[in-house]
Design a protein around this nucleic acid. Structure first.
Length: 906
RNA sequence: GGGCGCAUAGCUCAGCGGGAGAGCGCUCGCUUCACACGCGAGAGGUCCCUGGUUCGAUCCCAGGUGCGCCCACCA
């Protein structure tokens, strides 16, 4: 990073004057009246300001250096925002906003996916509700209807992304079915075809009767099911029989062989003989094949090349006939015989079993649990069928994509996904890329109706180049993932050499859930390298999957889904973003409504902290908001303390964002705002801006002091708000305006840590005071001191020189000088409260239940004695003293001393 | 059948070789002039089990148990 952002104009930094007058009296009145941040009222207005500003659209300058780019995983055009989108949107937006603030030309490529099967199914369903069937309409009309649907309902998700605050480049929205995109897809297809990577083949595929299309291996999910395993006797010609075992008796109608293992002693003499297929009477050769397991079933296997992927391979090895008895509609064909033709597969199964039973051929049956393939898309059972499809050879494309990840050109975070990727890629198989759908990129393949020749070309030929005959375009469309694989470069103008390409390719990071690591990410890497010569991104960040609060999958059908848009309406986009980031990790996580509420609380807290600062400063006599500089003017130890803590905060959150550690970034922000800024700094400085109720005009020095504190406060507030902006952009943008920052915070500079403001002494002093105050408050509570009671006390401890007054105020003590002669100062203490470095002596028992204090003291003594014994035991252990690092031993000695001091003080 | 991951407070999760943490929930007390979507104080834990390594294990290693997820063509 480094010097890239240094040219940024300083005026946008958090230190600086009010450059306009944002806080008119009316604004201040409104601020005073609104004690809560109202996201629903504020956030939509801020979205509009961002959009109008043009900040989200970077002008391409043709130079990759100094740019930052993310391509959004394009959501389905018909989709609605779900939790995965919301989380990934939040993650990408944190990255994008952070880099934009660091002065980089930042582009977040936006667009939607035509999502072949999914969209076709949605529209088909909608049409069905009107009583219209896809086939009645015809292809052209149907595709027209899908476009209408898309123009009407599509892009809702883009609106939802805006509402989330995602700072995508909305001015250049892309669609994987745009004309340019389609042209690029065709060119890629042609190039791969010409290289011999794409080919057509009759092969057994995963046929999805639901979508009436082939689908890829990755779209198949296996489900455990218990079926019946039937043992069926086939007679042998010339006497004897074999018994095969199957869970799919209906496919026996398509058997073309019986196989045994060549090493199986039992059946050696069967090989070469002929079995008779029951019900059909077809002669089946008995063959020997290694695939057959000797220890499964009978060791005799029916071979059905047309309806089982393994049998298909066996068939290919032995040149067996392929008989298809199940059609693409999932029903039995005429090949199955009159008795069964037209039945569904399940009906046929019953009928075949009944027929076999009549012939006395069922030898046995037993329950059998196995995995059954189902279509991820339609939910229907996959029917393996032989079909003429287009395939893509993957080995050559995979090799460089493997190397890219193995050698670190593409870094996968978290690391464990790297191994999964490499393993999957190393055993990659051909990809079936054709789909028998209507909505999608049609294959750029033309068939001559006269001579049957096939022409593959990116632009439609007029007539057959071979014979001049009429051409007909291939009916099939491409798998959606074929076009999405080109997303990071086609969206930038590829194959043309555009300024966009030169400015933003390759992209910086791809953020996604792991479910599409193979379907999409791996294919993008392969295609990116093949067509642009470079991987399409330097890093892949794999984020959590958000599950329902009860640990089940979030899904509409289960009723476990939580709609992020509803959560945004209820709690605000800031809250949802914070919540999702805070709950995310490298694991899958359960949705935690509490984290969203925590985010909402943070936004409100920050709002009120700024509200306090501005209202209180505005009321100072002799101080005008308009003339203040938001610069650090430390006057006291707490000023130095907060400035020091702030520098550390800036350093930490930047590092966390850069290492994709979003939960710690979000929670660290919360801790800083609550645990340091609000609980302590504001409480410590409040009195310095006290309103003077006596009406006495302040002296000149006092005005100077108040002015200095005001400037420090403004500075701290502006920097905090800037720091929080990537995570909670809305409330921070709103407050930035109130704080007089120039322009929009979205376009402001990221606050850089100023090492000179780090102050270890101040941190130690205030840290000690905080500890003491907490102990004193605990003591007060234990003696039932009323909240308003001011207790006379004296500090008898080292190290409170500059914080004693603060301790008095925040612990509600009336502190007297330690050596005060006469008066209460000389009084005998009635109690001593141990604090770091000594005790605080309590000088009056009035209003205190000191018996309770005594009981408390006793349990405290016990605790201390226990701890002392433990540390002494450790130090008495020779092994510890000689083997442990000297520093650790020293720490234990110091601890012992401290504990003994505390015990004594009691 | 392979692979990966997780078991810490009532819930959701951080932490990770030397004093068990957060948010929410719970209890008690607060109209303390930013915030009751708030403030202050508390209670609550054989850090899954069994071994091992170590001066020392919630943390490292091995095994076990339970729960997720991914990949896989045994009828």
């Amino acid at each position: 990073m480094g010097d890239r952002h240094e040219s940024r104009e300083e005026v946008r930094a958090a230190s600086g004057p009010y450059t306009h007058a944002p806080m008119s009296d009316r604004d201040l009145e409104r601020l005073r009246a609104n004690t809560r941040f109202e996201p629903a009222a504020v956030e939509p207005r801020i979205v509009q300001r961002w959009l109008d500003s043009g900040l989200f659209h970077p002008e391409p300058n043709g130079v990759r250096e100094g740019g930052y780019c993310i391509a959004i995983p394009p959501p389905n055009v018909t989709g609605e925002l779900h939790m995965g989108h919301a989380l990934n949107g939040s993650i990408q937006d944190v990255l994008v906003r952070h880099h934009r603030m660091r002065g980089m030309r930042t582009k977040w490529i936006l667009g939607t996916d035509h999502a072949g099967i999914a969209t076709q199914m949605v529209v088909e369903k909608a049409l069905a509700a009107e009583g219209v069937q896809r086939r009645e309409l015809g292809r052209e009309e149907f595709v027209q209807r899908v476009w209408e649907w898309r123009n009407h309902y599509g892009g809702r998700i883009v609106q939802q992304l805006k509402r989330l605050g995602a700072s995508c480049d909305y001015s250049e929205e892309r669609f994987t079915f745009d004309e340019d995109y389609a042209q690029a897809v065709a060119e890629v297809f042609v190039a791969l075809y010409e290289k011999g990577y794409i080919y057509r083949d009759r092969y057994i595929v995963n046929w999805d009767p639901g979508t009436h299309s082939a689908i890829s291996d990755l779209e198949v999910e296996e489900r455990e099911e218990t079926d019946t395993l039937y043992f069926i006797r086939y007679d042998l010609e010339g006497g004897g029989s074999v018994t095969i075992a199957t869970v799919r008796p209906e496919t026996m109608l398509a058997d073309t062989a019986v196989a045994v293992n060549p090493d199986d002693e039992r059946y050696r003499d069967l090989v070469g003989r002929t079995a008779i297929l029951p019900l059909i009477g077809r002669a089946l050769p008995v063959i020997a094949d290694e695939y057959v397991k000797m220890d499964f079933g009978t060791g005799q296997l029916k071979v059905t090349p047309a309806h089982d992927p393994n049998d298909f391979e066996i068939g290919a090895r032995h040149e067996l006939d392929e008989v298809s008895v199940i059609g693409e509609d999932g029903r039995m064909t005429s090949e199955a015989g009159e008795e069964f033709a037209g039945l569904t597969v399940m009906e046929a199964r019953e009928a075949v079993v009944a027929a076999l039973e009549r012939e006395g051929r069922i030898v046995a049956r037993e329950p059998y649990t196995h995995s059954v393939p189902y279509s991820h898309r339609s939910g229907q059972r996959i029917e393996p069928l032989i079909s003429l499809q287009w395939f893509m050879k993957m080995d050559e494309l995979a090799a460089p994509a493997i190397a890219a990840v193995r050698d670190g050109a593409v870094k996968i975070v978290p690391e464990n996904h790297r191994k999964v990727y490499l393993e999957w890629m190393s055993q990659i198989r051909p990809w079936c890329i054709s789909r028998q759908l209507w909505w999608g990129h049609r294959l750029p393949v033309w068939c001559c109706e006269a001579c049957g020749a096939i022409h593959v070309a990116a632009r439609a030929p007029q007539r057959c180049p071979s014979c001049g005959g009429d051409l007909r375009q291939e009916e099939d469309v491409l798998d959606t993932w074929f076009s999405s694989a080109l997303w990071p470069f086609v969206t930038l103008g590829w194959p043309r050499d555009t300024p966009l390409m030169r400015s933003f390719y390759p992209t910086d990071v791809l953020s996604t859930a792991r479910d599409i690591l193979f379907l999409w990410v791996a294919r993008m890497i392969m295609m990116g390298i093949e067509f642009t010569g470079r991987p399409p991104f330097a890093e892949v960040f794999v984020h959590s999957v958000i599950q329902a609060p009860d640990g089940r999958r979030m899904s509409k059908s289960l009723g476990t889904g939580i709609d992020p848009s509803e959560e945004i309406e209820k709690h605000g986009a800031d809250a949802v973003r914070f919540g999702l980031l805070a709950m995310s990790s490298t694991q899958d996580v359960r949705y935690s409504p509490e984290k969203v509420e925590q985010g909402q609380a943070l936004a409100n807290k920050l709002y009120n902290a700024v509200r306090f600062a501005l209202l209180r400063i505005a009321e100072q006599p002799g101080v005008s908001l308009q003339t203040l500089q938001a610069t650090p003017q430390p006057r006291t130890v707490e000023d130095r303390w907060i400035l020091s803590r702030l520098q550390r905060g800036k350093r930490e959150i930047a590092a966390q964002i850069e290492t994709y550690d979003f939960s710690h970034a979000a929670l660290g922000l919360y801790d800083f705002v609550y645990g340091e800024l609000c609980d302590w700094y504001i409480e410590l400085v409040k009195h310095r801006l006290d309103l003077d109720r006596t009406g006495t005009p302040p002296g000149g020095d006092q005005v100077q002091e108040r002015r200095a504190l005001s400037e420090t406060l403004l500075h701290v507030m502006r920097e905090t708000v800037a720091l929080a902006h990537p995570v909670i952009p809305f409330v921070t943008e709103e407050l930035w305006g109130h704080l007089g920052g120039e322009g929009l915070l979205a376009g402001a500079s990221w606050p850089q840590p100023d090492e000179s403001l780090i102050d270890a002494d101040a941190e130690a002093e205030v840290g000690r005071a905080i500890e003491a105050i907490a102990l004193l408050r605990g003591w007060r509570d234990s003696v039932s001191a009323k909240a308003g009671l001011i207790v006379p006390a004296r500090i008898a401890a080292e190290g409170y020189g500059s914080t004693a007054a603060s301790i008095g105020r925040l612990a509600r003590l009336d502190l007297v000088a330690s050596n005060g002669a006469g008066g209460v100062g000389a009084a005998e203490p009635v109690a001593a409260v141990p604090v770091p470095g000594g005790t605080v002596e309590v000088l009056s028992a009035e209003g205190l239940d000191l018996d309770a204090a005594k009981r408390r003291r006793e349990t405290e003594q016990q605790r201390l004695q226990g701890e002392i014994a433990r540390v002494q035991g450790k130090l008495g252990n020779e092994g510890f003293v000689t083997k442990a690092p000297a520093q650790v031993v020293e720490e234990q000695r110091a601890k012992l001393q401290r504990l003994q001091g505390e015990l004594e003080a009691l």
